[in-house]
Amino acid sequence: MCRSIKTLREPFTPAVTEADMRAAALQYVRKISGFRAPAPHNQAAFDAAVAAVTAATHQLLDSLVVRGRTADPAA
């Protein structure tokens, strides 16, 4: 499922942007919902899901520890 979503963690992707995370979230929500573009009455739920998945992705990537790397609190 969602084979075209690229890996967003180091070392596969050294610099991940908010746009990268949102694009992956959008693709995931489209796949799960079955809608490429939801009807107006579903738009709010669709947008909320994209925002939630984007936030979860951000939290996950911030929490992962990549072997051989130390966390940089300044980053």
Rank of each mutant, 00 (worst) to 15 (best):
A56L: 13
T7Y: 03
K31F: 07
R36H: 02
E10H: 07
A23K: 07
L64S: 09
D47Q: 10
A37L: 08
C2T: 13
A25W: 05
L61N: 10
I5G: 06
Q59F: 06
L26W: 02
P40H: 05
N42W: 02
A49M: 13
V53T: 14
T7N: 13
L64A: 09
F12D: 04
T54I: 09
A56P: 07
A74E: 15
L64Y: 12
T70I: 12
L60E: 07
C2D: 15
H58N: 13
P73C: 10
A55W: 12
V50F: 03
I5L: 12
A75R: 10
R30H: 00
L8S: 04
G68L: 09
D62P: 00
A48T: 12
A37T: 11
E10V: 03
V50M: 07
V29L: 01
V29R: 00
M1D: 15
V65K: 14
I32F: 01
L61V: 08
A15K: 14
V65F: 11
A19R: 07
F12H: 11
A44N: 05
P11R: 14
A71Q: 14
L64T: 12
P38Q: 06
T7E: 09
R69H: 13
V66M: 14
A55I: 11
P73T: 11
H41M: 06
D47H: 02
K6E: 10
S4A: 11
G68Q: 08
T17K: 06
D62K: 13
Y28G: 00
M1G: 11
A74P: 02
R69C: 12
K31I: 00
L61F: 06
V16I: 04
A74S: 15
T70S: 15
P14R: 14
G34N: 02
S4F: 09
L60G: 01
I32M: 02
V53Q: 14
Q27K: 05
T54G: 08
E18D: 08
